[in-house]
Design a binder for these strands. Structure first.
Lengths: 225, 225, 225, 225
DNA sequence: CATGAATGAGAGTTCATTCAT
DNA sequence: TATGAATGAACTCTCATTCAT
């Protein structure tokens, strides 16, 4: 999981020299923007704010992005990219539905502690143009569908207590998404601690318990190697 | 649970006659504002938008509120008021910790489907002045503390599996809070259906299973009288 | 022919009192804008320039117009309105085609000395949105068609020498349109003097005719090898 | 009459090779600029637009011109150069005043169909610095004076009907200048067709003359009461 | 009471122009 | 020589807020 720069206010260094990898600069802009968007919201973040932090001037940003919204959209895209990765990984996982759900929660929770990941769920979609809005929505629907299919799988393979997959998915996704609201990169709770606890807490609600000689036994899984 | 006007675009009627309870008018403003804030976000909702929908003029709003932010703050207060009520009710509940948690989820989820309730968790606190911000934060912390105490209670009375109450509370609160994001007043899922399913899904993760002659038995509760 | 305010820099008086006929103010804005557009071109005229001259602030203009372009478009419309009037008058005229053409030149030339009239032909259509552009173009085509029809009439009734009506119309319209370029409201040439001389020159031509045994004979020349 | 590149979007070829006559490149810039200025106006043409079309970068333009305005001024100069030529040719012409006027119209109309020529009359002088403005104005005045002198000559030698040479010149010049507005290089009307028809129409007038006992009698009309 | 009018501050965006390589 | 990068100034437009009626 890439660490991003909540802690490093030094993205402006990317602009220290005139000749420098433009891709690096572009990314520095995005890191800074994402940081500010999360801190103050997109609407209250002016391009001046972004530029100031990078020690450049406002119009310089237009070398890397066509307009403010493109910056926003790129944040979304980087974030959804991270989620895409974990979804693909999990799909390859062999395991019960419940295991997949747990793996999903674990990985997804981790993404929700990374700035770009947080952007996806925290920023206001209403700030996107209708086109970009559609793109993002499509993506989110995809995530939702995947989660539901994992749950469905689990119900079918008996690892998950029968329930309405739609509402169950809302419940799980909500719990994990909300991380992006309260998580503080500098806070005391380590991301992986959160992730593994969430995976456990949320799946145990789904798990069908099997009695095994008086001992409670829930189909347990370690969400990650 | 009071129904509010997602479906009734008729708040302007409160302003139809000159002689009318000013308190009614004030509330009509709030209903409309809350509706728009949820629809377009606070930042993108201009006072003109609010006034227009009420068939009054912009400066008229200043008779009822000192400024835009006060409208926002009042929305928060009405919302937290709703939550306050349910918290008090639950506190009076006699029952295990788990039962209280389930009751909390059920009631709280219902609030999250009501405009003012949604405002509390959906709107951006960054739009509040630092003073109002503090007020709201204090309130939110209070909610969180209550939920944690219910969980703690449950752990102590044996109705809840031992866990970190902080993270468990985040998980539950997140799942329920997120309702305010995806819930559509006109949608097909009825609020109470959501509420009860959430209560079940989320608590079963916490519930300690007791074996009772080979039959799985989770301490079940009906969240509502 | 209405006189407009090239000479009267006092349109700001319309804004002297807060309560005043909004229509008057709107017109004052247009007069001032038209004046500046002709003086400095639309592009180089900032809304500040307009506002300053009216002793108001820039955003005040937005009470009367949605945006800068609407101001421009209104100038066009007032101008085309003036032309419309004269076209209708002439159509009612009984007379030969030649007489109609002459009447057209006379009246049209007069319009070209009035600010709003000048706007129609002097300002750059490229500054209009494509919609407004279409509107204006439609209008201009209409004028052109009328003039051609007058010429055609004249050819048919024998009052005009057979020629290509299209090119003849271009020639006449050009001569008259160009007035909007060089005419100075404060200059020494009175508008009506220009108008009547144009009507004569363009209909009769420069050439002095010499009679040669009943055959019309104009001193002909081949303009260039 | 030099043909210029309305039809040939290939001026960038001049920049294809590094080693190439700088003068050629300079001219390529001017051709392209003139084309764009006519198409979109000077104000709406950015140096980027020019550079892009030439497949070079914006700062490269500064090797050939000190600033944007110099490009504009050069367009004017090339255009006035074309006019200068024809004026000189005509001055050498032996012939009556009327013949000179006709020759002027013919040649001048042709220039008005060439990009640089069109620039002279179509572009907005207000975009020039006051110095350049003065230069161009001086030039235009010269053209006007010449035309007037031709007319005066004609009046004196009897080839032209007595009239106010000033207004007559305005009338003729206007008609011809306006060509630069409506002429389309790709259009169906060939430049020389326009030129010769203009020469005839403007010198002879529209009115069909009727001979009446040796006295010239044109169907006279008073254009408007 | 209520309103139309007006304002000041600030936003995003564009562009000619100049560095620095 | 030629260029990518950067800037500063300017402009349009929006909006919460306050007069003045």
């Amino acid at each position: 999981m890439p660490k991003d720069g909540a802690a490093s206010p030094s993205h402006w260094k990317a602009f220290a020299s005139r000749r420098r990898d433009p891709a690096t600069k572009r990314e520095a802009v995005l890191q800074t923007a994402a940081h500010l968007f999360l801190e103050k919201s997109y609407g209250r973040t002016s391009l001046n704010d972004v530029a100031e932090r990078l020690n450049i001037t406002k119009p310089a940003l237009y070398h890397y992005f066509r307009n403010k919204e493109e910056i926003l959209l790129e944040c979304y895209r980087l974030g959804t990219g991270l989620i895409e990765e974990i979804l693909n990984e999990i799909a390859l996982h062999c395991g019960t539905g419940l295991e997949k759900v747990a793996a999903f929660i674990y990985s997804y929770a981790n993404v929700m502690t990374v700035n770009f990941g947080r952007c996806v769920m925290r920023l206001d979609e209403g700030d996107l143009s209708s086109e970009a809005f559609a793109e993002v929505r499509t993506y989110k629907r995809k995530i939702d569908r995947r989660l539901r299919s994992f749950i469905q799988e689990g119900i079918e393979d008996g690892s998950i207590t029968p329930c309405d997959p739609k509402i169950a998915a809302f419940s799980i996704a909500g719990a994990v998404n909300w991380i992006c609201i309260w998580y503080e990169p500098e806070g005391e709770l380590p991301a992986e601690e959160i992730a593994s606890q969430f995976a456990r807490t949320l799946t145990q609600g789904l798990a069908r318990t099997t009695t095994n000689g008086g001992e409670r036994e829930v189909s347990r899984q370690e969400p990650l190697p």
